[in-house]
Design a protein around this nucleic acid. Structure first.
Lengths: 173, 173, 173, 173
DNA sequence: GATGAATGAGGATTCATTCAT
DNA sequence: TATGAATGAATCCTCATTCAT
């Protein structure tokens, strides 16, 4: 899964062959099929694992007994930390964004997760006193993903911390 | 090129075969090779054509004899109009963002263009009196691309005009 | 189709690879897929072609304006002639007899054909005055197929004409 | 062997994998190789076991101290009983009839057995006073195998007892 | 005796590309 | 300019078989 994620992220799902994954993982081609039913199944496993990982810290924050200010700050810091760590995963998800056929079977999970997160963001912005919390949530999401998109393409050339600080300042954090 | 763009955008470069493109375009597979050296060449032609198209209106605006306020407003309006029209093109570019091998040979053109645009944006924000115009250009870029990314995934469900208005308000336009 | 029939008949459907078929046919592996959607599709095409060929002469006889004696004699002579000529086809059908998954999609056609033929045989035996024409049709079918089965396994060592004559004598032909 | 016979009979030798056999037998894939050298060896063991089983009752009958009438009746009754019981075995043998490579190494045993049985049948028909006992043996064999072939394909829809009675009547049994 | 992880050859299928017409 | 038959490399996947435990 590690090898596959790296290759999927760097070259895309379709451009990565099972052969290359196996070689990188140091196993035989056939062995992959002892653990995953298909290439698609491997992809799904990777995506799900990562979703769960993110869900974990997200829920920790949401359920934490702190102010919405604290929560939002925490979320932003953590998200930036994560994108720095899970580079390949974000690249993979982005390049897959417009290929629903490949994600078939995950759409439901992903969609539901998205709705959930959005709701929790709206709740936070409501608590923070924003006039139109829904719109602010959309703004937050757009900026966050755009920032990540650019970071993933430029990496060290991107002023990620500056951008993060912009957000923190916006919310007086 | 039209047929290819639509398919590349909807299903991705690798998942789209020359056969399907030819069928959609109503020509034979062989004929494509009279006009394009390869599948990759076709992709490059599509990308370049679109870049030039965008360069055209962008330059028109930049060179126009108006205030930076007017220019920025114009750029934002036009960009939003374009993403609405050229859906497939943006989808294609996004899904290709992390597949450098396919874009080999275009990287230079794209990179140079990006630098140019960035410089012109910085100039505008400087004229507008922003304290850190570079940072603002990055912010603008991140929000714009993030907004487009979400719009392309949700289309009608996305409050694109609200987001656009957010930007306009930010710059007092 | 010719090459495939010969190999399918001699070695069985599963033991015959597309590679071997292509080599025998003197074409590339890929070309087969210009004409048939899959290996299974190729098999079906072969089976259907043969069914239609047999249906042709069978219907000619059934509709002919002759006595039931003449018809039955004709059928027996023709069937024996056919098994001698279409050796591989009969081998193929026999080896596939117990693998319904492979024949999926043909079962209906084959089943219906079988019912039809059976009905026409019963009609003939009725006209010939047999007490239990249904039972006689079953007898006829069993003997015919058993005879063919043995012929296909022993070929020249099998007294096919003797067996045919046995049948002709049974019906006073 | 039991599990393998069932699967081989139902789906064919090639379409049945060692994995499926092991799962059905409730053992590991590896364990099979402690008892059989290969998949082919397993098949051979199954076929040989069954041949020996049939040889047993066949020899009992042949050596029995009764009239040829009694013997033939006994043989017919027993054979019909066997096909009803050993459905999978007959299906397997039939589907393998035209795949000599798989049966390599068994051809001799099977061929010899066939010659032996044929000789004993001829002896019986000679004793029964048939003019051409050889031809009658071929007739008997063809009808018997054809009848079984049809029975195995139609099972309950086939009038097996009627067909058996036909034979019994033919020999005044 | 028993397991199942691991292998790798081989199979069906796809597809960019070529080329005779 | 246009076709589409033909190719063959590459892809995903299966499976008999081995072997350390």
């Amino acid at each position: 899964m590690e090898a596959a994620l790296e290759l999927f992220g760097s070259f895309g799902y379709h451009a990565t062959s099972i052969s290359k994954i196996a070689k990188k993982a140091g196993i035989s081609k056939g062995l992959m099929y002892n653990y995953f039913e298909s290439k698609e199944d491997l992809l799904h496993a990777i995506v799900i694992e990562n979703i769960e990982e993110h869900e974990a810290w997200w829920n920790d924050i949401i359920k934490a007994d702190t102010s919405p200010f604290e929560k939002l700050k925490w979320i932003i810091e953590k998200a930036v930390e994560m994108v720095r760590k899970d580079t390949h995963h974000w690249q993979l998800l982005t390049s897959l964004a417009f290929q629903p056929e490949i994600m078939k079977g995950l759409e439901d999970v992903l969609g539901q997760k998205q709705v959930e997160v959005m709701g929790q963001l709206v709740a936070i912005f409501t608590e923070l006193g924003w006039e139109d919390p829904m719109k602010e949530a959309f703004f937050y999401g757009a900026f966050m993903d755009g920032m990540f998109l650019h970071y993933l393409q430029m990496i060290d050339a991107y002023p990620l911390d500056d951008m993060k600080n912009y957000l923190l300042k916006r919310y007086d954090l």
